[in-house]
């Protein structure tokens, strides 16, 4: 159980903010400037997005703090699992087989 109350300056916030700016511009660069194939671009910028979401969760939202830190982590991991099932599952099911013609 740790709460970030004592530090004098919001260091983790500032680092988080700069990192997220960095990640955003990196994604824009990869998508619009780097000459890569669509699939590779999507994998890279997708990973950057996941990274940035993690940044928000840990640096800004303090997902692990408090007596329910563990619960929160399980909750977020489970939600992410459900989200992946929904998105990947739907796309897979609806774009394969004859029905996709």
């Amino acid at each position: 159980m740790e709460y970030k109350t004592n530090s004098k300056y919001p260091i983790s916030h500032i680092i988080g903010f700069f990192l997220s700016l960095l990640l955003t511009f990196a994604a824009v660069f990869v998508a619009l400037e780097a000459q890569l194939s669509f699939t590779i671009v999507m994998w890279i910028i997708g990973s950057l997005a996941v990274l940035q979401a993690g940044l928000q969760l840990f640096m800004f939202m303090h997902v692990t703090e408090g007596e329910d830190g563990k619960t929160n982590i399980i909750n977020m991991a489970y939600s992410a699992f459900v989200a992946i099932v929904i998105v990947a599952g739907s796309v897979w099911v609806l774009t394969s087989g004859h029905a996709a013609h």
């Binding site: 897979w92 099911v93 609806l94 394969s96 087989g97 004859h98 029905a99």
Partner: peptide, 8 residues
């Protein structure tokens, strides 16, 4: 029966 293919 919506025919998403045998793999699905």
């Amino acid at each position: 029966t919506m025919d998403a293919g045998p793999a699905v």
